[in-house]
């Protein structure tokens, strides 16, 4: 019994699915952000797996996930600042209470 790339891909897919469910169902905006982090992590696992599959000469996958981690950090910082600003002006961070723009 060996661990194939498909095992890693499977874990990554499950993690991505859980993250997607969190994003779509959590009512608190910070919870939604946690789901996005989970999804980004799943994608990183995928990238590193395929980096390993295509050999040690190419490190594109690892470099790419480095960039993903950096962008995720920037996204989290700006997202949390936005949530704090919304909380200060509205007193809530529940995503379905913020519906001024509903058509």
């Amino acid at each position: 019994m060996t661990i194939t790339p498909l095992h890693f891909v499977g874990v990554s897919a499950l993690l991505f699915g859980i993250g997607l469910l969190v994003v779509l169902t959590r009512r608190n905006a910070i919870g939604v952000l946690m789901g996005i982090e989970l999804m980004l992590n799943a994608v990183n696992v995928q990238l590193v797996t395929f980096d390993r599959v295509y050999g040690p000469e190419r490190l594109d996958g690892q470099l790419f996930s480095l960039f993903v981690i950096t962008v995720a950090a920037a996204e989290a910082v700006v997202g949390l600042a936005l949530i704090l600003a919304v909380y200060r002006s509205r007193g809530t961070v529940a995503v379905d209470d913020l519906h001024e723009l509903r058509g």
Binding site: F8, M34, L66, I69, A76
Partner: peptide, 30 residues
């Protein structure tokens, strides 16, 4: 997967910075 550097970056950036930031935001808004 043999990507130790990435593991280090993951712990430093995600666990050290992003997760702590998220916990801060939870405490500030809830």
């Amino acid at each position: 997967l043999g990507a130790e550097f990435l593991a280090g970056v993951q712990v430093l950036v995600y666990v050290g910075a992003v997760a702590v930031l998220i916990l801060f935001a939870v405490m500030l808004t809830q």
